[in-house]
Amino acid sequence: MAAYTVDGKDYEHDEEGYILDVNDWNSDLAKTIADAEGLDMTDEHWEVVNFLREYYSEYQIAPAVRVLVKAVKKKLGADKGSNKYLYELFPYGPAKQACKIAGLPKPTGCV
């Protein structure tokens, strides 16, 4: 099994890079995953990642992109709740890539 290593500790992940235990997540691990994805985390990235963590905590599911856009729009406003904005932040798919960085399982319906 593959793993991310942060400060000498290994965090196992699946073949696509999603960590196996959502409770292992921390911001240093998120930065490591983002680096592996080729992303420099900005405040805007963190806002979406933290939103996803809260969403998962409440609903126990990682949202697919359509649900994510709608939920972000409701919570953070129309300017941030759009496909365009979220794809600019997470070019490999806002639900898929952002959930990976947030330490969540792969969203249902994502290939």
Rank of each mutant, 00 (worst) to 15 (best):
M1N: 14
Y4L: 01
T5V: 14
V6W: 07
V6D: 03
V6Y: 06
D7F: 12
D7A: 14
D7W: 08
D10H: 12
D10Q: 15
Y11L: 01
Y11F: 08
Y11P: 01
H13A: 07
D14G: 09
G17H: 03
G17M: 00
G17Y: 01
Y18N: 01
I19T: 05
I19M: 02
D21Q: 11
D21P: 00
V22R: 06
N23A: 14
N23P: 01
D24F: 00
D24C: 08
D24A: 04
W25G: 02
W25Y: 10
W25I: 09
A30H: 03
A30G: 08
K31N: 09
K31A: 10
T32A: 15
T32W: 09
I33A: 03
I33K: 00
A34G: 02
D35K: 15
A36M: 09
A36P: 00
E37Q: 10
L39D: 08
D40M: 07
D40S: 11
D40Q: 11
M41F: 08
D43Y: 03
E44Y: 11
H45T: 05
E47R: 10
V48N: 04
V49T: 07
V49N: 06
N50L: 11
L52V: 00
L52Q: 04
L52C: 06
R53H: 09
E54F: 10
E54S: 13
Y55W: 07
Y55P: 07
Y56M: 02
S57Q: 12
E58A: 13
E58L: 12
Y59F: 13
Q60F: 12
Q60T: 13
I61F: 10
A64P: 04
A64C: 12
R66F: 12
V69P: 02
K70P: 00
V72R: 02
K73A: 13
K74A: 15
D79G: 00
D79C: 00
G81E: 06
S82G: 13
N83R: 14
N83A: 11
N83S: 13
K84L: 15
L86P: 02
Y87I: 12
L89Q: 08
L89E: 03
L89V: 08
F90Q: 02
F90E: 02
P91G: 02
Y92S: 12
G93L: 01
A95N: 01
K100D: 03
K100L: 08
I101V: 08
A102C: 08
G103Y: 03
G103R: 07
G103N: 04
G103K: 05
L104A: 02
P105D: 02
P105Y: 05
P105M: 05
K106G: 02
K106M: 10
K106D: 01
P107F: 01
P107N: 02
T108F: 11
G109F: 05
G109P: 06
C110M: 09
C110D: 11
C110N: 09
V111F: 14
